[in-house]
Design a protein around this nucleic acid. Structure first.
Length: 242
DNA sequence: GCGACAG
DNA sequence: ATCTTGTCGC
């Protein structure tokens, strides 16, 4: 392993001690009207185009936003949080400061604790913001065992160091599953229930698809898909490099 | 040694 | 994640 990776792995081991994952029905549980933010990023060279879909739990859409910030850290598998975390944090802080909207829950395109060192990007964002987060990824980083049922809602546990950290979750009948895990302040059970309750008839829940579309169109300077352009989001600061 | 590897 | 054409199907 490279020295850089050793250092990043150590950072993750240190950050991990701040992560709080409640049990069962404890921790954050959304109630009607809670504000939820779904986030995704598209890249063009060294720029991170961030899309954010803001909506009320079991309620109306608040708005879809997109902005851009320089992504200065390279992507290294399992160290994704250091590349994607800072840009996402800048985006969240911008919405908070400039638009006065603070989410009660953040849904991230990536993993929470279903990660080799139990520190995915959703955990990173949760620690940085102190806001409950959960991760929703299209592929897994850790191996799992078991046969997944075909029906929506079927799930297979994902273990790391023999601890239950996430689920392979069928979000639509007969469709390739998603990988769901809590990031911070939400239980695994609640994370799964939240994802299954999100609107949409596709593998990826609508809020994440909207965030993806906004980011994608922002990267192409297109407004075909409706979103509020918040332009350039200052510089990203390196966090947690203690 | 080789392949796999969130986005 | 991105580079890329057509094509099959609802």
């Amino acid at each position: 392993m490279q020295d850089i990776e050793k250092d990043l792995a150590l950072q993750q081991e240190k950050l991990r001690q701040w992560v709080e994952i409640p049990d069962g029905k404890e921790g954050y549980c959304p109630v009607k009207g809670d504000k939820i933010l779904a986030l995704d990023i598209q890249y063009t060279e060294d720029f991170a185009h961030i899309g954010g879909d803001f909506f009320e739990w079991q309620g109306k859409s608040i708005g879809t936003f997109a902005g851009v910030v320089r992504a200065s850290v390279p992507y290294i598998p399992s160290y994704f949080c250091f590349r994607e975390g800072p840009p996402l944090l800048s985006f969240i802080e911008y919405l908070q400061k400039q638009l006065s909207i603070v989410p009660q829950l953040i849904i991230i395109d990536g993993h929470g604790i279903a990660h080799p060192r139990k520190l995915g990007v959703a955990c990173w964002i949760g620690i940085a913001t102190k806001i409950p987060t959960l991760g929703c990824a299209k592929d897994t980083l850790v191996h799992y065992q078991g046969e997944l049922g075909e029906a929506k809602g079927s799930r297979v546990p994902v273990l790391v160091d023999s601890n239950l950290v996430g689920y392979v979750l069928r979000t639509q009948d007969g469709i390739k599953p998603l990988f769901v895990s809590p990031g911070h302040l939400v239980s695994l059970e609640t994370s799964v229930e939240i994802v299954l309750s999100l609107p949409g008839e596709y593998r990826i829940p609508d809020p994440l698809r909207n965030a993806d579309q906004a980011a994608r169109h922002h990267a192409k300077k297109s407004q075909e898909f409706p979103y509020q352009d918040i332009g350039e989001i200052g510089e990203v600061k390196p966090f947690f490099y203690i």
